[in-house]
């Protein structure tokens, strides 16, 4: 399980930059990030190398945010691997609410972040299929 921070931001120029600067200028590294827009507002989901510090910085900046657990999966960086993971979850009737993926420094490996309907069950079924679950990224 990986800890993720979600931040509410207005959907207007400059807001992502301001958010990233709050984090980045204070020495926290954003390891992964997803930006979602919904009309007038947006949502930033991110995983940093120091969530404790990051949330303190967000709190000081007066932003609305929430910490939560998501599933981090290490997969092969080749065609079909994401489909395989999705199929395993689907067979177990687990719903994927959202997901984002990125490649890593580890050669030929990619990381998939998943928000699922049943976190514990997901870990069980993926582990029993031999998929590596990450504790941090």
């Amino acid at each position: 399980m990986v800890e993720q921070i979600s931040v509410f931001i207005d959907n207007r120029p400059g807001r992502l930059a301001e958010l990233c600067n709050i984090i980045g200028k204070n020495g926290v590294d954003i390891r992964a990030l997803q930006l979602v827009e919904a009309g007038e507002f947006g949502l930033v989901r991110m995983i940093t190398d120091n969530n404790e510090k990051a949330t303190k910085l967000l709190k000081d900046a007066g932003m609305s945010f929430r910490k939560g657990e998501v599933l981090g999966v290490l997969m092969d960086d080749r065609p079909g691997s994401m489909g395989l993971i999705a199929s395993i979850l689907s067979e177990a009737s687990i719903n994927i609410e959202y997901a984002y993926a990125f490649i890593t420094k580890i050669e030929k490996k990619a990381i998939l972040i998943l928000k699922v309907s049943d976190l514990k069950k997901s870990i069980d079924v993926l582990k029993s299929s031999g998929v590596s679950i990450l504790e941090n990224i």
């Binding site: 509410f8 979602v36 507002f41 949502l43 989901r45 609305s64 609410e97």
Partner: peptide, 15 residues
């Protein structure tokens, strides 16, 4: 204004 109290990670909840 969306406070921490009402903010959730889910877009559909916000909508």
């Amino acid at each position: 204004e969306v406070t921490n109290e009402i903010f959730s990670d889910s877009i559909s909840e916000l909508i």
